[in-house]
Computed example of a mutant assay.
Amino acid sequence: MADKVYVDNVEATAAWNTVLFDRFSEYRHIFVTALRRFGDDALAGDPPNAGDRILDVGCGFGDTSRQLALIAGPDSHVTGIDAAERFIAAAVEEAEADAAENVAFRVADVQTEPLGGPYDYAFARMGTMFFANPVAAMRNVRKSLRPGGRLVMVVWRRKLDNEWMYRSEQVVDRHVPKPDAEASEALTCGPGPFSMANADTTGDILKAAGFDTISFRRIDIDMLVGGDPEEAVAVALALGPAAETVRLAGDDAERVRPLIERDLLALAGEYRTASGEVVAPASAWVVGARAPA
Rank of each mutant, 00 (worst) to 15 (best):
F131T: 00
E163D: 08
T128C: 10
N198M: 08
Y121G: 05
A208H: 12
T201D: 11
A132R: 01
D173A: 13
R142M: 09
S195T: 12
A186I: 06
P147G: 09
R167L: 14
D200R: 11
I219N: 06
A183M: 11
N133T: 05
P134V: 01
L248C: 08
R158N: 06
R217F: 03
A186Q: 13
D120W: 04
M196K: 06
R174D: 14
T202V: 12
M223N: 03
P134C: 00
P193A: 14
E169S: 07
E113D: 15
M165E: 09
W156C: 04
R150L: 12
N140R: 02
D173C: 07
A242H: 00
A136G: 06
I205S: 09
S195E: 13
F130C: 07
A122R: 01
N162W: 08
T202P: 09
F131Q: 01
F123L: 01
R125F: 05
G226T: 06
A108N: 08
L248R: 13
V155H: 00
V172Q: 11
T245N: 09
V246P: 02
E182K: 14
K207R: 15
I219F: 06
V110T: 11
T213P: 00
M126A: 10
S195P: 09
P229Q: 08
L151D: 06
A232N: 01
G203A: 14
M138K: 05
V135R: 01
L115Y: 02
A238E: 12
K159M: 15
E185A: 15
R125C: 07
L151G: 05
M126V: 07
R139L: 01
P241S: 00
A122H: 01
G227S: 04
A183I: 05
K178G: 12
L224T: 06
T128R: 01
E113T: 11
T202G: 10
N140G: 02
I221V: 13
N140L: 01
R125L: 08
P229Y: 09
R125I: 04
E185Q: 14
D228G: 10
R142G: 02
S144W: 02
T112A: 15
F211E: 03
P193V: 08
L115C: 04
R174G: 15
P118C: 07
A122F: 04
D220N: 09
P229C: 09
A232T: 05
R125M: 05
P134S: 01
R217N: 11
H175D: 11
L206P: 05
W164P: 00
